[in-house]
Simulated scan of single mutants.
Amino acid sequence: MRRALLPCLLLLSACDAQSGDAPDTDDRDPVAAAAVNDPLMSDPDLAGQNQGGAALIGGGPASAEIPPDKSSKDEIDAAKAAALQIAGGSLAAAPLPEASSGTSPLDTAVTAPAIATALKIGSPACAAQLDYTALWAAKLSAPFEVYPRGHVGQSAGSDAKGCRLRVIGFVTPVAVEDVIAFYAARGKAAGFTAMRSKAGDDDLLQGTRGAASYAVAARLRDDRMSEVTLATSGI
Rank of each mutant, 00 (worst) to 15 (best):
C8Y: 10
L12M: 03
S13M: 15
D16H: 05
A17N: 09
A17S: 10
Q18P: 04
S19V: 13
D26P: 00
A33G: 12
A34P: 04
A35P: 01
V36W: 06
D38Q: 11
P39T: 01
D45K: 13
A47C: 03
G48Q: 01
G52C: 01
I57E: 04
D69K: 04
S71Q: 10
K73C: 06
A82K: 15
L84M: 14
Q85N: 08
A87N: 10
G102Y: 11
S104Y: 02
D107R: 11
V110D: 06
A118V: 00
I121T: 06
S123E: 08
S123G: 11
P124F: 06
A127L: 00
A128Q: 09
L135K: 15
W136K: 02
P143Q: 09
P148V: 11
R149K: 11
G153M: 06
K161I: 05
L165N: 01
L165V: 12
G169V: 04
G169N: 02
V179E: 06
V179W: 07
V179N: 09
A181N: 06
Y183T: 00
A190Q: 08
R196N: 04
K198I: 15
K198V: 15
D201R: 11
D203R: 07
G207F: 11
A212K: 15
A215L: 02
A215C: 05
A217R: 03
A218K: 00
D222Y: 11
S226I: 02
L230T: 06
S233P: 00
